[in-house]
C-alpha cells in the first residue's frame, strides 16, 4: 500500500500561495511603474487583495479541525482483489 499524509497537499497549497502572492505583487508593481496608480486601479487592486484575504480566511476556517496526519491511500493492491473473477 502506498499512502501519503494529508499535510503533503497543504505544502502544495502553500507553494501555490507563494506563486499567487509573487504574481499579485508583480501586477501591482507594473501598475506603479507605468504611472497607472489611479483611483480605478486602486479600487481594483483593493478588491482583488480583499477577495484573496476573504478566500484565505474562509479556507482557514473550514480547515481548522482537519487532522493533517490522516493517511491518504494513493495505491492499494487490494483494490484489484476479485477483479478477475468470472
Amino acid at each position: 500500500m502506498f499512502e501519503i499524509s494529508l499535510y503533503i497537499f497543504l505544502f502544495i497549497y502553500f507553494g501555490f500561495l507563494a506563486i499567487f502572492f509573487i504574481f499579485s505583487i508583480l501586477n501591482f508593481y507594473h501598475i506603479v511603474v507605468t504611472a497607472s496608480f489611479t483611483l480605478a486601479s486602486f479600487i481594483v487592486s483593493f478588491f482583488v487583495f480583499s477577495l484573496a484575504t476573504l478566500i484565505l480566511y474562509a479556507t482557514w476556517y473550514l480547515l481548522i479541525n482537519v487532522d493533517w496526519q490522516t493517511a491518504v491511500p494513493l495505491f492499494n493492491y487490494e483494490w484489484f482483489n476479485g477483479i478477475l473473477i468470472f
Binding site: F16, L17, F20, S24, V44, V48, A52, L56, V66
Partner: peptide, 30 residues
C-alpha cells in the same frame, strides 16, 4: 480526506480566478 482536498482545490481555484482577473485588468488598464 475528501473534504480538506475539496476545500484546498476550491481555494486554489478561487485564488487563480482572482489572479486571472487581475491579469486581465492589467492588460486592459496599462
Amino acid at each position: 480526506i475528501l473534504f480538506p482536498l475539496a476545500t484546498l482545490s476550491a481555494s486554489i481555484y478561487y485564488l487563480g480566478t482572482c489572479l486571472f482577473f487581475y491579469f486581465r485588468f492589467i492588460e486592459f488598464y496599462l
